[in-house]
Design a protein around this nucleic acid. Structure first.
Length: 258
DNA sequence: ACTAACCTGGTC
DNA sequence: GACCAGGTTAGT
């Protein structure tokens, strides 16, 4: 469940079920999440969660003692909220037990999710570019940032240092909407194309954040290009094509994305 | 800038 | 059995 809109949903859940509560224990249930020293394990007992925050695809849980728990879902992570006496869900990889008996379980079939703890005081640098809705992000600032990027625009947009929070789906959707070929060198985009691209990124992210766009389980209901190889383009009826860029699938319309 | 790796499950 | 997966990163 892992691009910006999905993480935003996850953080809203954190605000509901974690913020204001006191931690009883934190459990790491899979070796790939690492292991905690006994001291670290003990340090969570009694810690109060004061705030939940999204930065790009990262989730930050701020504690009253100044520390911050950082969670990244990677490909398949998600939260499951229940109580400590409930049976642990399949694929439970970590859990935060709260003093009131509620529990937050990190569910992740592929176990690629990451959790770590940042100490109090030090600012957390995640190397992220501006959020899509940051007013400081403009066609002009984007142009500056892309000026020396020879690589194709599609993989460049997956770089979280360019714009924070974009992933494979919404990059494909935004490029389709902006009618830009994913193979175009990033530095070759004209100012008017960058204006279009930025508007498309914002549209696609905003649309994906709306409930109307999702089914009962929160899954995306309708995409214009992603995963539509061979299907007709919704603009020009040509067949959507799939190519590989930087070892990831890219979908685009070879006719109207130029 | 590309590939492989991290992990594991679901699908053809 | 092979291939694919909405992410990131280390190594080439």
């Amino acid at each position: 469940v892992p691009e910006l809109p999905e993480i935003e949903t996850a953080v809203r859940l954190l605000r509901r079920v974690a913020v204001g509560r006191v931690i009883e224990a934190v459990h790491l249930l899979h070796p790939s999440l690492g292991r905690m020293s006994p001291a670290l394990r003990r340090s969570f007992h009694g810690a109060r969660v004061t705030m939940a925050e999204r930065r790009g695809k990262h989730q930050l849980l701020h504690l009253a003692d100044g520390r911050t728990i950082r969670v990244h879902f990677r490909m398949t992570g998600d939260w499951h909220a229940d109580t400590v006496d409930a049976e642990r869900p399949r694929f439970a990889r970590a859990a935060i037990d709260f003093a009131d008996g509620t529990r937050l379980v990190l569910v992740d079939p592929r176990a690629l999710s990451k959790i770590d703890v940042h100490g109090a005081g030090a600012p957390i640098d995640l190397g992220l570019g501006p959020e899509p809705d940051d007013p400081a992000l403009t066609a002009k600032s984007l142009r500056r940032k892309l000026a020396n990027r020879r690589g194709a625009i599609k993989p460049v947009l997956l770089d979280q240092g360019v714009i924070a929070g974009l992933g494979n789906i919404y990059v494909a959707e935004a490029l389709w909407r902006a009618r830009i070929d994913p193979r175009r060198p990033a530095m070759s985009l004209t100012p008017s194309e960058l204006t279009r691209l930025l508007a498309a990124v914002r549209f696609v992210i905003r649309r994906a954040s709306g409930a109307r766009y999702r089914d009962r389980d929160g899954r995306i209901m309708r995409l214009d290009v992603y995963d539509r190889e061979g299907d007709p383009c919704r603009r020009c009826e040509n067949r959507i094509q799939r190519i590989t860029q930087a070892a990831r699938s890219s979908y685009y319309c070879p006719h109207c994305q130029v």
